[in-house]
Design a protein around this nucleic acid. Structure first.
Lengths: 150, 150
DNA sequence: GCTTGACCCTATAGTAGCTACAGGGTGTGC
DNA sequence: GCACACCCTGTAGCTACTATAGGGTCAAGC
């Protein structure tokens, strides 16, 4: 099949498929006389594997690793597969915590302006301004020594 | 003060300050005879404003808007400030939900391999492989019609 | 006067994971 | 012989920085 058909079968953009090939995630297929890529059914599964891992938020580097383990299922222990997933779980969990803090901070900031104000009189802008001068602000309470995201 | 001193006072990298200037977030300061940037105390507050907004996860485009409202506090209503914060809250909230789904999916996948296996025998790899062939998988249960992250 | 070292400058390329062109070739139907 | 859908390569764009390369400036110390 041609690249367009592979794209349709996997729900992946043509450009993305070519990108995966460049990045070494998808093996380069055979070419027709005119230079068109010719994919086999196996490519559908390989691309689905990649897309599935991506849908789990994994990086292309991690997917490359996983795909490699998958293609060459040696009799080695699979500790590194587990470690890779564990790391991913940790990353996602820590992102959730960061975002939850962010949400609380934003809600606190939002609480400074409810009724209609003018720009000159807006509690949100005033809060941001005060914080710029070093005053404590509702969004970053001094009680917790949080790391400011860079 | 020179750019290095501004960087120290705000905890912002020198390169980042120059980047903000290029992007129109921080006004270009006066220059010394030799071309060095000369900052005034007001720049400290302006940069703190930007960093504070960044720590709330806001985009540079949004911060540009906010900074503009802040610098020119017209007697207009501040609805757009509120809307901007509300949008940010919505974005953060939706990211949290996406990541929480992701975490559940990853934990389900992780549950397929506990005791030491070989690569050829790893429940995680097997699950990913089955999913690539179109079979239902633990990480993407068919009950909920979830959007696959692109 | 000369060197050392800390500081500054511009311009450019890199990061992740794509996406979107420009500018061209191929293949099929009418 | 033309339109149109499809394919190709190569390059630039996106976010918010970060990290060089290659150079200039300035104050202190000899």
């Amino acid at each position: 099949m041609q690249i367009g058909e592979l794209a349709r079968q996997t729900g992946c953009e043509v450009e993305t498929i070519r990108y995966y090939e460049r990045e070494g995630l998808l093996p380069a297929p055979a070419r027709s006389a005119s230079g068109y890529r010719r994919y086999e059914p196996g490519h559908v599964e390989q691309l689905n594997f990649i897309r599935h891992c991506r849908s789990l938020g994994m990086s292309l580097a991690d997917i490359r690793q996983l795909a490699d383990y998958h293609q060459h299922p040696a009799p080695e222990p699979c500790d590194r597969v587990n470690a890779l997933i564990d790391d991913q779980i940790r990353r996602v969990h820590s992102q959730i915590e960061t975002l939850q803090q962010l949400e609380q901070q934003l809600l606190a900031l939002r609480g400074r302006c409810h009724s209609p104000h003018t720009l000159a009189d807006c509690g949100i802008l005033k809060t941001l301004e005060d914080a710029s001068s070093g005053e404590p602000c509702v969004c970053h309470p001094p009680a917790t020594g949080k790391k400011i995201a860079g």
